[in-house]
Simulated scan of single mutants.
Amino acid sequence: MVDQNDGAAELICIVDDDEGVRDSLDNLLRSTGYKVRSFGHPAAFLACDVADAAACLILDVKLGDVNGLDFQQELVDSDAHVPVILISGHGDIPMTVRAMRAGAVTFLTKPFEEGDMLAAIGEALTRDRSRRDANRVEDGLHARYDALTARERDVFGLVTSGLMNKQIAGRLELSEVTVKIHRGNMMRKMEADSLADLVRMAETLRVRENVSRYVRRDVGGSKP
């Protein structure tokens, strides 16, 4: 039985047009402690209101009028990040290569061992947790940045572009003391302990791409 902290709260979705395979997987996963939803066609999966919550998608390659590999690529192209496990009764090397290049966790050939499927699901859930954790961190970072004043954002961008307080003061036509105050408030709101922290945040936020109007060619020297 899966521990509550190791996947019981996470949803596994199955897309396979073979009812027998769906039922078999459903029984295996529920007996192991997972929540499961199964679908006979990709359109049914996409129409389901829990699709975005899926932590793992088990996807058959042969789905009647739909190729599972094509559907996997559609998910990638639409920026859907659910980890995918491909299954097929007629897998071959080109299929496997295509699936893995598109980011599949693995490609299992039917009939597969229960242990292999459970191991693949474990890897998929680890990937999904990591992605969701990273998203939460980034969302928090954006929220902190949004809480900055316009002037604090200016200082953020210039500091992480390599300018000293005196140079920033000249760019923004402020006193150096005022820049230090804005810089201190900005670092406190961003929960940054060092310039290195700020630089990493700026890379994530792409802040430095937006400060070219302030940064001149003499970043390391004096004004022209």
Rank of each mutant, 00 (worst) to 15 (best):
residue 3 D to S: 12
residue 16 D to R: 03
residue 17 D to S: 10
residue 33 G to P: 01
residue 35 K to A: 09
residue 35 K to Y: 05
residue 36 V to H: 05
residue 38 S to F: 08
residue 38 S to R: 09
residue 38 S to M: 11
residue 41 H to Q: 12
residue 41 H to M: 11
residue 43 A to E: 14
residue 49 D to T: 15
residue 50 V to P: 15
residue 56 C to F: 06
residue 62 K to I: 11
residue 62 K to S: 11
residue 68 G to Y: 02
residue 69 L to A: 03
residue 69 L to I: 02
residue 70 D to M: 04
residue 73 Q to P: 01
residue 75 L to E: 05
residue 77 D to M: 07
residue 78 S to H: 07
residue 84 V to L: 02
residue 90 H to E: 14
residue 97 V to E: 00
residue 101 R to W: 02
residue 103 G to T: 03
residue 103 G to D: 03
residue 110 K to I: 09
residue 114 E to V: 13
residue 119 A to Q: 14
residue 119 A to L: 15
residue 120 A to Q: 04
residue 123 E to T: 12
residue 127 R to C: 07
residue 128 D to L: 05
residue 129 R to S: 09
residue 131 R to P: 09
residue 133 D to F: 13
residue 135 N to R: 14
residue 139 D to Q: 13
residue 139 D to N: 10
residue 143 A to N: 05
residue 145 Y to L: 03
residue 151 R to Y: 00
residue 153 R to Y: 00
residue 156 F to R: 00
residue 156 F to C: 00
residue 158 L to F: 00
residue 168 I to S: 00
residue 169 A to W: 01
residue 169 A to E: 02
residue 171 R to H: 05
residue 172 L to K: 00
residue 173 E to R: 07
residue 174 L to M: 06
residue 175 S to Y: 06
residue 175 S to I: 02
residue 176 E to M: 07
residue 179 V to N: 01
residue 180 K to I: 10
residue 181 I to A: 03
residue 183 R to N: 08
residue 184 G to I: 10
residue 185 N to V: 04
residue 185 N to S: 11
residue 186 M to K: 03
residue 186 M to P: 00
residue 186 M to S: 02
residue 191 E to S: 12
residue 191 E to F: 08
residue 198 L to D: 03
residue 200 R to V: 09
residue 200 R to C: 11
residue 201 M to N: 04
residue 206 R to L: 04
residue 208 R to K: 10
residue 209 E to A: 07
residue 214 Y to Q: 01
residue 216 R to K: 11
residue 219 V to R: 13
residue 221 G to W: 10
residue 222 S to K: 15
